[in-house]
């Protein structure tokens, strides 16, 4: 079963195609803020490099976020359109899972951290398990100081990965038992997405295009302000 994976929830655009034999082809563009422009040609090119016809694709997978709202929507919208046009099932994988997956060969606790802008981070904790990773917590939103306190309180060895960890490097660097991974692994990739989605596809954990919803972890400002006003 061939899986096409789309990841646009970060400043990067990445597309991969693969299945049980691993990733057959992938593309990555890191020029930023050109998601809608880059994605369609990237899908076309990736499939051509893999010598795969669109009708041979069996599943469309997409990075669900959290991440950059506008970029995220470009990928989710394209993925839904593709699933609709080809009558395919979909698999959505959270961006934080995608960050943690490639660094799983460690006994340390993995902390996936995405820059949420406005001085905040999206993060979650993971642990290696046979064949993959296990998320230990719900997705969280907080400041670098919030996360630093959580790391200190845990008393565990922590491995931080993601652009959020790098942006607020100074908040974590001096901490005891905390290691920060470098730029090479700072963003999720569509290749990880295809691998993780393949595991889910074997368990037939599919959703329909209209059931798939992005993970924003933040209300629109207008709604948040409205709620504050109602409560005051």
């Amino acid at each position: 079963m061939l899986i096409l994976g789309i990841d646009t929830a970060t400043p990067q655009v990445s597309v991969a195609i693969g299945g049980h034999e691993g990733v057959l082809a992938s593309t990555l563009s890191a020029r930023g803020r050109q998601h809608a422009e880059s994605l369609t040609p990237a899908i076309e090119f990736t499939c051509r490099m893999a010598r795969v016809e669109f009708r041979e694709i069996g599943v469309v997978a997409v990075d669900l976020g959290p991440g950059l709202f506008t970029g995220l929507r470009v990928g989710v919208s394209a993925a839904k359109a593709m699933a609709l046009a080809l009558g395919l099932p979909m698999i959505g994988v959270p961006s934080l899972d995608l960050l943690a997956f490639p660094v799983r060969f460690t006994p340390k606790r993995i902390v996936a951290v995405v820059d949420a802008r406005r001085g905040e981070l999206f993060y979650a904790f993971y642990r290696q398990v046979p064949g993959g990773i296990q998320r230990l917590s719900a997705h969280q939103v907080g400041t670098a100081d919030d996360l630093a306190s959580e790391l200190l309180a845990s008393g565990e060895d922590n491995l931080l990965v993601g652009d959020g960890a790098l942006r607020y490097r100074e908040a974590f660097e001096g901490l005891h038992k905390v290691e920060i991974l470098d730029e090479a692994l700072a963003y999720p990739s569509a290749s990880s997405l295809v691998s993780l989605a393949h595991a889910q596809a074997l368990r037939e954990q599919f959703v329909k295009p209209w059931e798939l919803t992005p993970v924003y972890l933040r209300k629109p400002d207008a709604e948040a302000n409205w709620t504050t006003r109602e409560q005051s």
Binding site: H35, A36, L39, T40, I43, E44, F54, R73, V74, G75, S77, A78, K80, A81, M82, L84, A85, L86
Partner: peptide, 9 residues
């Protein structure tokens, strides 16, 4: 994004 994908596919 959706329209370009539909046209491509």
């Amino acid at each position: 994004s959706a329209a370009k994908t539909l046209a491509l596919v």
